[in-house]
Amino acid sequence: MKGNEAIAEAAIRANCRHFFGYPITPQTEISAYMAKRMPKIGGTFLQAESEVAAINMVYGAAGAGVRAMTSSSSPGISLKAEGLSYIAGADLPCVVVNIVRAGPGLGGIQPAQSDYFQAVKGGGHGDYKMIVLAPSSIQETVDSTFDAFDLADKYRMPVMILGDGMLGQMMEPISFPDSADRPTYDKDWATTGTKNKRRANVINSLYIQPEELEQVIWAREEKYREIEKTEVKYESEGLGDADVVVVAYGTTARVVKAAVKAAADEGIKVGLIRPVTLWPFPSEIIAKTAKNVKAMLSVEMSTGQMVEDIRLAANGACPVAFYGRTGGVIPTPDGILEQIRRMVI
């Protein structure tokens, strides 16, 4: 199955029945798949008039207590920023897919990771976070989609799946987890109608009293701290005796793995950290690793965004170099190997 279709099917199997989208390359297969499947299973597929409308439909549906989802690519995610901020501010669960393309502006449709800042630092206004999952295989994309809905419901917050055109178009064999094994969540806060049996529920992000708003924001921060403690996910290789450790996520991590293997074949002691959650960021393992290695290298399809978080985590314990290709250019194993070689000279 193609990555984009795998996300759509996984969402349906994770009991998402409400999808609101707006066409944009390279993620249109998600909408197309939803358009075909949703009507057959009593779900809603709605092509909105814009990404702004789509994310606000998600807000309404999520607030009404159902699993809701939207997907887009970079320029569309910029338009969703307003809605994401409101969703975070109203503590609503939802899943947003960003199949990233090159920017800024209309940019290009080829794979990129230049929306890292937008995804992990907010994108919309205000003090808020999204959980950001960055799968690097189609199976992991499927698993991430299931996880995304559970995390969203568990913490009542937006969860983003960050991919790129390469993952979206790639085909790999997959198996789907069983949704029956998943927890269910009671949504007694949702606007389902009081049925004259309870007090009215309100979905809202407005607080006129500064002290009250501050309290709400700090309470949310506490939830974020909890997530940073419990939900970090990463993959690592060869950290034990490494001189150099490369950090990369998503599509780039696949290329980096080939480069790391080639470097190891040359006798270079090189390890890999692949963040699966970009927020919460695997800062702890990076901090620990930085103390034991000569240097770290961040490889990204951007001009250098995640590298800032690696440097913060490393906190000066070792130099952190950066190698990136951007604009839709995918780094090659040779290009990365060349960088690794330079670091051990």
């Binding site: 609101f20 809603t44 807000y59 549906a61 009404a64 809701a68 009215a200």
Partner: peptide, 29 residues
Amino acid sequence: NYFNVDMQQAAHGRAPAVATGVKRANPDN
């Protein structure tokens, strides 16, 4: 705060989109 029914507060101008989401989630409401 003024209507004694379940309420959602929408971003500026987005109420019809939010209402669409609410309605599609529970069409009998």
